[in-house]
């Protein structure tokens, strides 16, 4: 495993921990999109169907369990926990996530490497992950008032995707036959979605002012 991949996984892990910290400790999910969190739970549930059948490494299995466990517990917190539920900004989180799930499913049925259930589900999870952040970005833009933890959560998620791109470039040059168009194009699309957010996040940090997004 190269350094980019490890750093990518770690920023992904940090993003989840930041969100759990906010929800578990402060008992608030203000500014967090439940739609995006439900999409991530679906992403991990469909991608890690191989968790008990294909053993890669202890690292892989543990990380998969963490991402599955954390994504479902975040959804549980936001839907069921009395205090957390109260801070959920339901009126602004109106993105219709079915509009993302269905096209991704159709695309996975059309474009995949192998036509097997596991492979199509895996491909679906790759496509869905690329766009799963959209409800969150829309919510940020609508609420305008972005607290530090929410900003950091989205920043670390974006950093994870950018580092994975560096990981793919590295692997392409160091491993034979390492060509994965589906993952690369989806990953690139996903990273580009963060570009706008990154621009405002970094300029607010440089100018030492509170992060706001233009309407």
């Amino acid at each position: 495993m190269n350094a980019f991949r490890l750093a990518g996984d770690m920023t992904h892990l940090i993003s989840v921990l930041v969100l759990l910290l906010k929800i578990h400790t402060i008992k608030s999910c203000a500014g967090i999109s439940l739609k995006t969190q439900e999409l991530y739970a679906l992403v991990f549930a469909t991608r890690y169907l191989d968790i008990f059948t294909d053993f890669i490494s202890l690292y892989n299995t543990v990380m998969k369990l963490i991402f599955l466990g954390s994504s479902f517990s975040i959804v549980w917190y936001m839907r069921r926990h009395k205090l957390v539920q109260r801070s959920y900004d339901k009126d602004h989180d109106t993105f219709r996530h079915q509009l993302l799930v269905l096209p991704c499913l159709i695309l996975a049925l059309l474009i995949h490497e192998q036509f097997t259930f596991k492979e199509v589900m895996w491909t679906f999870s790759i496509y869905l992950e690329a766009v799963a952040i959209l409800p969150q970005l829309v919510l940020l833009q609508r609420t305008r008032n972005i607290d530090n933890l929410t900003g950091q959560y989205v920043f670390f998620l974006g950093a994870y995707r950018s580092l994975y791109i560096l990981n793919w470039i590295y692997r392409y040059f160091t491993e034979p036959h390492y060509v994965h168009w589906i993952t690369w194009i989806s990953g690139l699309v996903q990273t580009l979605l963060y570009a706008d957010f990154f621009y405002y996040y970094i300029s607010s940090w440089k100018n030492n002012v509170k992060l706001t997004l233009p309407a």
């Binding site: 991949r5 996984d9 992904h12 191989d50 890669i56 892989n60 490497e113 036959h177 390492y178």
Partner: peptide, 10 residues
């Protein structure tokens, strides 16, 4: 490519 390589990623 069969995609076996990529499955070691998360």
């Amino acid at each position: 490519s069969s995609g076996t390589n990529v499955k070691d990623e998360l």
